[in-house]
Amino acid sequence: MLILEQWINGLALGGVYALIALGFTLIFGVLKLFHMAHGDVFMFTGYIVVSIVVFAFGGLPFFVVLLIAMAVASLLGMAVERVAFRPYRQSDEIIPLISGIGMSLILQNLALLIWGPGQINYSFNVGIGNVSFGGIQITGIRLVILAASIVIVLIFNYWLYRTRTGRAVRATAADPQTASMMGIRPELIILLTFGVGSALAGAATALVGALYGAIYPALGFSMGLKAFAASILGGLGNMTGAVVGGLLLGVLEVFTASYINVAYQDAIAMGIMILVLLIRPNGLLGKAVEDKL
């Protein structure tokens, strides 16, 4: 019966990874930009939301917390885009990479200065206890996370594939020049992309907060790494890929930890990622782009 618990643990964790990876891969898809500070947007949002929700207002309903987190992350993401990425639109792709690392350092150290070092512990009022049946016990919040990630992914997909703005985003991703000739304003779309992509990370912030109730400055970096790995696994710029990659990574980590050793969790996850890339150089669901050597 333990194995069912393991699956749910892994999928819930994977759901969080998937949300962060989805935003990351969306941004990559539109700008071909590796957003190194994406994880830190996630982390910084956590601090802001905890300050607002827990310390200023007390127990807001979780749904409201989720919306606040998404809004905060969205604004933060757009601000980051303005400062760290916009100036380098024409540059070699490695330049925004470094600028992103700088931004990541800035956010981490700002968090450290504002909220102090060390871990802040809090709890969101989710109001769900544990679920137990047939001798196993599952943290209710994990089920909520799993459900919430699925719903958010579905809404996001609807937006991207069924609405005019979503189509504009995809058009810009496919061919920015042609898109702009069709009357789409690329800069606006880019801003929007960062807004939506970061909002997804914000949703992850709220869910992670509900489950773990802890935040610390280095959380962004480790979560960011997981999101990079998930989107690479699935195929960069591929939305379904990010979700599949995230879930896979979550399950993989949990099963490595339980059947091999927690100590090797990261090493095995990364090793498998390299292997997958060797077999499928564009990720599991990535389309082979024209072979440019």
Binding site: A84, I95, Q108, N109, L110
Partner: peptide
């Protein structure tokens, strides 16, 4: 480290 980050973002 904050300033270090600012240097990285702005030197470029």
């Amino acid at each position: 480290m904050l300033i270090y980050g600012v240097v990285l973002v702005s030197v470029l």
